[in-house]
Design a protein around this nucleic acid. Structure first.
Length: 302
DNA sequence: AGCCAGGCTCTCG
DNA sequence: CGAGAGCATGGC
């Protein structure tokens, strides 16, 4: 029998794991079923630890319970907590963003439903880079399906009881995989090349976390230097993977649809239209754009 | 069934 | 240079 450790984390209110996960399903390897978020996490010492996360307490008094399905020491536990805090935005205070939203009738009207939703976020910069490429062009569901194939095919896993917990494929695994192997995970030929190239750069020492500290223009330039990463992808990576929330991927079709619907009476919105509207959102352009997106096409899921 | 979907690169003219 | 082709899968 596996010894199960638990720890309780506070989230800054308002917070709802359930609304956050249902607004946009988490990409593989994370799963969300019956109120439980699960995946395996690779720690810096190489250990692979499966975790399960659920919320206890309501959105105004949010406590997140983390079940560790392997025995870990104090240092490992702190690392896990840090990863989950980042992934779930537990200690990010969204209240300033909500305050900005209150000044705008459109945004204020969706705030009540969505204030406990956290902006779409990746576990780390690396996963956001790979997934960013895989989200290009095709529908979200198609992309989620491909990411799942990639994780099942090339991700490391650990079995606990009757369940298998996956981690995202390591850069080494993607760099080593042949193009044909990646295509077998249903990537297009081009995306297989891009993903492999990004993974190779990381294996060779590129650290995408450094993008968090660079000036915005520089970070965008570095990202766009990769084959397969254009402006949309670079901005998505900075927003979801590095929490550069002052960024909005203005070319995003969904965000453009949302701006069109709420601010332009249905008239097609260009990327520049999005940037103009988002000018008022200060350093919270991504969270607010995301709220708008969720309000525009995902309300019935919540 | 066919067409479009949270883009990007490469190839032409 | 600007325009156009091609791409993978899922959903309407």
């Amino acid at each position: 029998m596996v010894e199960k450790q638990k720890c309780l984390l506070k989230a800054s209110p308002p917070f709802s794991l359930d609304l956050s996960m249902r607004a946009t399903q988490p990409a593989a390897p994370a799963t969300y079923e019956n109120g439980v978020l699960a995946r395996a996490l690779r720690l810096s010492n190489g250990r692979l630890v499966p975790v399960e996360v659920r919320q206890i307490g309501d959105s105004e008094n949010p406590i997140v319970e983390v079940k560790l399905l392997a025995k870990v020491d104090g240092k490992e536990r702190r690392e896990i907590v840090k990863m989950l805090d980042r992934f779930l935005c537990l200690s990010d205070d969204l209240k300033p963003a909500h305050k900005i939203m209150q000044r705008d009738p459109v945004l204020n009207s969706i705030l009540e439903k969505l204030c406990a939703v956290r902006p779409w976020t990746s576990l780390n910069a690396y996963e956001s880079m790979i997934c960013g490429v895989l989200f290009q062009q095709i529908s979200l569901n198609a992309a989620f399906s491909i990411i799942r194939s990639l994780v099942l095919g090339l991700g490391d896993s650990v079995v606990v009881g009757d369940r298998i917990y996956y981690d995202f494929p390591r850069p080494e695994a993607l760099a080593r995989a042949s193009i044909e192997r990646l295509r077998a995970c249903r990537l297009s030929r081009n995306k297989a090349v891009y993903v492999k190239g990004i993974a190779q750069a990381i294996v060779e020492g590129f650290n995408p976390e450094q993008l968090g500290k660079m000036p915005l223009d520089e970070a965008l330039e570095v990202l766009r230097g990769f084959k397969g990463i254009g402006l949309w992808t670079a901005e998505l990576i900075l927003a979801t993977g590095l929490k550069r929330w002052e960024v909005v991927p203005a070319d995003d079709l969904g965000i453009r649809r949302a701006v069109s619907k709420f601010y332009m009476g249905g008239k097609t919105a260009s990327a520049n239209d999005v940037r103009e509207v988002a000018e008022a959102w200060g350093p919270y352009k991504w969270p607010i754009a995301y709220y708008l997106l969720v309000a525009s096409e995902r309300m019935q899921r919540l």
